[in-house]
Structure formats: C-alpha cells, structure tokens
Design a protein around this nucleic acid. Structure first.
Lengths: 100, 100
DNA sequence: AATGTAACTTTGTTTTGCAAAGTGCTTTTA
DNA sequence: TAAAAGCACTTTGCAAAACAAAGTTACATT
C-alpha cells in the first residue's frame, strides 16, 4: 500500500527549492540576484540551496562577466526538468483527490 | 515581488505530513496503525509528526478501546482543513504555470 | 509466565535551514 | 588613490527537524 507522497522528490519538499525550480522552469536563465530578490533569501542561504540542486545535476551554472561585473546565472537541466515535472505530477495526483 | 511559494504553509513542506493530511481529508477518522502502514513510517516517527499537527490544532485525537485494545484515531479539524486547502490552493497556482 | 499488540516516549544521531560574518574580486565614488 | 560598494560566495555556528532504535505502559492472548 504505497501512498502518493512516496512519489514526491525529497529535494523538492523545501518550499524554497520549489520556488527556485518553478522560476527556472519559466525562465531559461535566471540571475543569482533575481532569485534572491524574488524569494527573499540571504546570499548564503540561496547559495547553499543552489549547491544542493547542482549536486543532483538538476541545475546548470553559468558564470560570466557583464561589463566587468561577475554575474552568475542558473538554468534547469533536462534531468532537473524531468524530476521537477515528476514531482508536480505527484502533487497533481494529490490535488485530484479533493475534487471528487 | 512575492513569489507563490511564500503562500505555502511550512508545516506542509514535509511530504510525510502532506501524506498524513491528504489521508485525513479523504477519510474522517483514521487509525494510527493505518497511517503508519500507508506511509511506511516507524511508530516514533509518526507519533512526532502527529504531535506537530496536533500542536497547531490541525488534527483531533480520539483514544478509545475497541474490545479491550487501545485504539487511537485522528481526524482533521476545520482549522486543519482550511490550512491544508489553502496550501493546496497555492500548489495549484504553482501547477498552473506549466500548462501555458 | 511468556509473548504479542498498540501507541507511545526517550534517546541519540544525522541532516536542515538559515542568519551573520568573512572573503576575493572588481567597480564606482569621494 | 583610498575608501566604499556590489556580486557571489564560503565559513561558522546554532537551533530545529527527521528519523531510527530502544524502552515503556497497559492490556490480551497462548
């Protein structure tokens, strides 16, 4: 007897990482600063969440200079998109229960 | 600029409590043992999650004897149902983004 | 008397989450 | 040109959370 929630990805339990991923699903490349401001996170906090997502190869990092300032941008990988979509599928199943 | 995820309830970040609540939304009264088996949790683990939900008055506990055996059952309170539905509403908003 | 079942509580370890401060590099401002 | 500021971290440190494992209480069965 396996419950729906066993199909949820633990990495996406965190509402912070849920927010990060949902932004990366909508916009191809997103700046560190933009993520930080949208989600209201401290630098360190955001950096550590990104590291976790990177460790699972769910996101890709690009570091470049714009003008002469460093700029870090992130994008979801195919693997990340798949994992996140699977997670959302499971959430959708959960939501279906309350309709009927 | 507030992101959708700020509307999520932190208590329901945990996929375990998400599972517990979704079971309590569907069935009025659910036994400790049933929750435990459905979600694949240890006694202690489940008990501590239930305590957290109880502390927020999201669930109600009923202890009785069936035959002469003790039996604990749980139900979601009106407050709990409201909070959970609000959480699910926020998740639904999140899911809407990927349709378009 | 010994074993079993239900529902915990306690203990302890590991993992998170997050804030605060510090770092390295570069650019802007006084 | 020295100081301040911006970007993206890393490090430190702490408090809360997750969870397993073992112990507890109370009754029931064998």
């Amino acid at each position: 007897m396996k419950h729906i929630t066993t199909k949820l990805n633990k990495l996406f339990d965190s509402h912070t990482r849920l927010g990060i991923m949902s932004l990366l699903m909508v916009h191809e490349w997103v700046e560190f600063k933009v993520l930080k401001e949208n989600l209201g996170l401290s630098d360190g906090n955001l950096a550590s969440h990104m590291k976790k997502l990177e460790a699972s190869e769910f996101i890709e990092v690009r570091k470049e200079f714009v003008g002469r300032k460093p700029q870090t941008t992130y994008a979801a990988t195919a693997l990340g998109r798949k994992a996140f979509n699977d997670h959302l599928d499971a959430l959708e199943d959960l939501l279906k229960q309350r309709k009927k």
